[in-house]
Simulated assay, not measured.
Amino acid sequence: MTFSHSTGTRGARKPGRLVRWFNGLALRRIRRRGGRVLGMRLLALTTVGRRSGQPRTIPLAWFPGGEGRWYVVASANGAATNPAWYLNLAARPDDVEIVVDGETVPVRARELQGPERDEVWGRIKDSASQFATYERATDRHIPVVELTRRDTAGS
């Protein structure tokens, strides 16, 4: 399982305080009711901090990948660097859980590569045009991550 960690030389500003405030509201809504915020399907992703070892939770837009699979994008609004949650996933891809549609699900993370990534990325941009805007804002290769339900009995 490989994560690319690519960074760019240009990009939009990373999300600031207003986005962090909004994320707090979105997390409360996801935990209470699940579902959508501003028309986007959101999940709450909990990773383990790669340096701190502490749980870190963030709301993310998700895209369907079939039974027991969800896709998320490490766009950081088109910033030149990857978001912290992506780096946490890269460090501990098997120590992840999501809350989606009111259900807490242990998952395993895998960054998509090559034609598989390109196909899913195209579908994501078709369904949510802001991701094409993020792609134009940076020269970084924006990671697409597949989250797959983990069998808790076998983990």
Rank of each mutant, 00 (worst) to 15 (best):
N88Q: 13
P55M: 15
R69E: 13
E116P: 00
R140K: 09
R150A: 12
S155Q: 10
I124F: 01
T7Q: 11
R31L: 11
N88Y: 12
R17W: 11
V73T: 05
K14H: 08
V144W: 01
G114T: 04
T47N: 15
A80S: 15
P64K: 06
N77A: 14
A76V: 10
G39P: 06
S75L: 11
Q54K: 15
G35F: 07
M40G: 01
T2S: 05
L43G: 11
G34T: 09
L42E: 06
T104A: 05
G49P: 13
E103R: 12
L45A: 15
V105N: 04
P115Q: 10
R140I: 03
G49N: 14
G24C: 03
G114V: 01
S4L: 04
F3P: 07
R149E: 13
L45W: 13
W85Q: 09
N23C: 08
S127N: 02
P55G: 12
A109T: 03
L87F: 05
N82T: 10
G24N: 14
A12C: 10
A137F: 07
H141A: 10
R150K: 10
W70Y: 14
R69G: 05
R17H: 09
W70V: 04
G68E: 12
S6Y: 05
K125N: 06
G16N: 02
P143Y: 03
A44W: 09
A91P: 03
W21H: 08
R10C: 08
G34Q: 14
A80K: 12
T46M: 15
H5K: 05
Y134Q: 00
R117C: 03
R50V: 14
W70D: 08
A128E: 07
G122P: 00
L45H: 15
A12Y: 11
R33S: 15
A26L: 08
I30F: 05
Y86Q: 07
I98Q: 06
G16T: 03
A137L: 13
G34F: 10
P83D: 10
A79R: 05
R13D: 09
L42A: 05
I124E: 02
F22Q: 04
Q54S: 14
Q113S: 05
L89K: 03
G24M: 07
G53A: 11
V48R: 15
A76L: 14
I98K: 06
D94C: 00
L43E: 09
A90Q: 05
A153S: 04
L45V: 15
V19K: 06
M1F: 03
A26K: 06
R56P: 02
Q113V: 08
L89V: 04
G78H: 05
L25Y: 14
R110W: 00
N23M: 06
T57C: 14
M40T: 08
D139W: 14
L43M: 12
V99I: 13
R51E: 14
D101F: 00
E97D: 11
W21A: 12
E119M: 09
D118S: 07
T2I: 00
R50T: 15
G39L: 02
P64F: 09
I124L: 00
D95E: 11
